[in-house]
Structure formats: structure tokens, C-alpha cells
């Protein structure tokens, strides 16, 4: 069996409740970091009213109420599926972000450190440009080779 096929066989189960136009998940923070839950829920604020609760210690309750009042059970089930997928994606994103945080800090600092130095030179040049060159009382702008100077 190929590696991809092996991965395909591994699954995650997620329980949800449907009640009166709403979908409810009770999510364990040990499995789903709080930021992943918040991140997934946030992406649904265009379609749903999102309520977050604390049903038990270490659990976050996510209740999604469809803004479309005509949403039927099939729609809500699809919504639950989308949320579950997004939750798993958010977990991946958070794990990747955490594991690469120091690397990113390093290359971002390196990228912008050089620009900051350049920026200060540009700022100095601009300051000089901003001065009124016509009012050159000390004749600094006049070349010293100029015999009329």
C-alpha cells in the first residue's frame, strides 16, 4: 500500500448536534487549540451568528446559527462539515506557524533590517531635497570652479 493510501485511511471523528436551525460542537482544547477554534469560527461570521461558550473545563462550545432563516437540516449538516474541515485546517496552520515562528522572525528581521538602513539614507536625502535650494545664502550649490562665484 502506498504512503498516500496509508494516510488516506487515517480518519478523525467529530461529533456535533443539530437543534432548531443551529449547529453545536463541544470541542476539547487538548485536541483543538483554542486559537484554532476561534480561527475557524471567525471564518463563518459572514454566514452565521457565532456563539462561543464554555460547556466544561477544557472545552469550547461553538454554536453556529445560520443567518439564512430558511436553512434546512441538509444545509446545516453541510455547514457542520465545512466547519469541521476548517477546524482541521486551522490546527495544521497553527502547528506550522508555531514550529516556524523563529525561522520567520529571523528572515523577516533580515529582510527589513537592510531596508531600514536604506530608509534612513532616503530620509536624509529627502530632508536635503526639502530645503529651499533657491535660498542658498552660503552659495553651497555654486561650483567652486565657477569664476563668477
Amino acid at each position: 500500500m502506498s504512503e498516500a493510501a496509508t494516510l488516506e485511511r487515517q480518519t478523525t471523528e467529530l461529533v456535533f448536534e443539530l437543534q432548531q436551525g443551529r449547529v453545536f460542537f463541544a470541542l476539547d482544547e487538548d485536541l483543538y487549540p483554542r486559537d484554532a477554534i476561534f480561527g475557524a469560527a471567525y471564518l463563518f461570521v459572514d454566514r452565521c451568528w457565532v456563539f462561543l461558550t464554555r460547556p466544561a473545563d477544557g472545552q469550547v462550545g461553538v454554536r453556529l446559527r445560520a443567518k439564512d432563516p430558511s436553512a434546512d437540516e441538509a444545509t446545516l449538516t453541510a455547514l457542520a462539515g465545512e466547519f469541521a474541515n476548517e477546524l482541521l485546517n486551522q490546527v495544521v496552520r497553527i502547528r506550522v506557524a508555531e514550529s516556524t515562528a523563529q525561522i520567520r522572525e529571523f528572515y523577516m528581521a533580515k529582510a527589513f533590517f537592510a531596508d531600514q538602513a536604506q530608509s534612513s539614507i532616503d530620509a536624509l536625502l529627502a530632508e536635503l531635497d526639502a530645503e529651499e535650494l533657491a535660498e542658498d545664502d552660503l552659495a553651497i550649490e555654486v561650483p567652486w570652479e565657477d569664476p563668477d562665484a
Partner: peptide, 11 residues
């Protein structure tokens, strides 16, 4: 109220 279980590919 009804309870359902989703089975998703594990990441």
C-alpha cells in the same frame, strides 16, 4: 435535537 458524527480524513 439530534447528534451526528463526522468522519474526516486525518491530517
Amino acid at each position: 435535537m439530534s447528534t451526528h458524527t463526522l468522519t474526516l480524513p486525518h491530517r
